[in-house]
Amino acid sequence: MTDTVTQLCTLLEPFNGNGTVISATTDISTDLNIDSVTVMDFVMEVEDHFDIEIPLNVLSETRTVADLAKVVEARTRKG
């Protein structure tokens, strides 16, 4: 696991109500059974943890932890 994926898994843990083992391939919404508002709340935590901006527009193409890690890494470099 990359460092970003590890950090995302840790950030995701408080939203993991059903005890799923979280990894890079975890689908954030369907595997953890969390609704759209909760996904946005999680992304807000990610934004603040990495001090980056993740517009809601990119979320429609971001399903797994690995997808989100790519977004985070691209935006961390940019900043």
């Binding site: 946005m40 807000m44 901006e53 517009p55 809601l56 527009n57």
Partner: peptide, 13 residues
């Protein structure tokens, strides 16, 4: 409405 606008969307607490 925000989605329809095509604008970049940033949510604040």
């Amino acid at each position: 409405g925000c989605t329809l606008s095509g604008a970049k969307l940033v949510r604040f607490r």
